[in-house]
Design a protein around this nucleic acid. Structure first.
Lengths: 109, 109
DNA sequence: CAGAATCCCCCACGATACTG
DNA sequence: CAGTATCGTGGGGGATTCTG
């Protein structure tokens, strides 16, 4: 697996952080993984509206960025579980904060 | 000034929040405005690498989203100041934490 | 000084279909 | 079940020039 960073050339730490969890689905995926591992199919149901292509692609980016871990079980039928790394878990409090802010905004608008 | 929301159809509060401060420069602009108002020219120097087009465009979006306020002084030469709204200020703790996380990540990688 | 106006390109993302 | 493979597109963003 490639381990390249999905961060181009950050002008500052804010820039860097936003590049790392930017994209349309990264925040939501990290968020639904907050309570434990989920299988691919569970993720695709939890992240409403995501296509298999985008799910797979985003999961790969998050893995390359070491925010999540992929664990494949060699069984039939196939089974793959995704979970947060320690670094990924460190983001949950912030995302939680963002979520509270978002909830408040959505209700007052 | 148009007041449309730059948020399409959020699937959840996390989605909503990320749409609202997504984009390449929004986080950085909010961050540099944390300590007070800045003029257009000061912003363009503070947000290194941004073009006038993107600065103007992003400022308009942030204003339409009610995260910043624009105040124009009718003088010669022109003078325009931007500052955070209360709603925008509420995001600063979050961005601050993201920034700390980013700094840590940048140093340990 | 603080933008507006154009032109243009790339790629994130979507839709659809297929597979070990 | 957990993905690939292809094809297509819109708009986010860049470069450059102009102006009240």
């Amino acid at each position: 697996m490639k381990m390249k960073k999905n961060v181009q050339k950050a002008h500052c730490a804010v820039d860097y952080a936003f590049q790392r969890i930017g994209g349309k689905y990264k925040g939501r995926i990290l968020w639904v993984l907050r309570e434990g591992r989920l299988r691919y199919g569970e993720l695709s149901r939890a992240v409403v509206g995501i296509t298999p292509k985008m799910l797979t692609q985003t999961l790969k980016e998050l893995e390359a960025d070491q925010l999540i871990t992929r664990k494949a079980y060699f069984e039939v039928p196939p089974k793959v579980e995704y979970s947060l790394t320690d670094t990924g878990m460190e983001l949950i409090p912030f995302i939680s904060q963002m979520r509270s802010w978002g909830e408040k905004q959505m209700s007052t608008n």
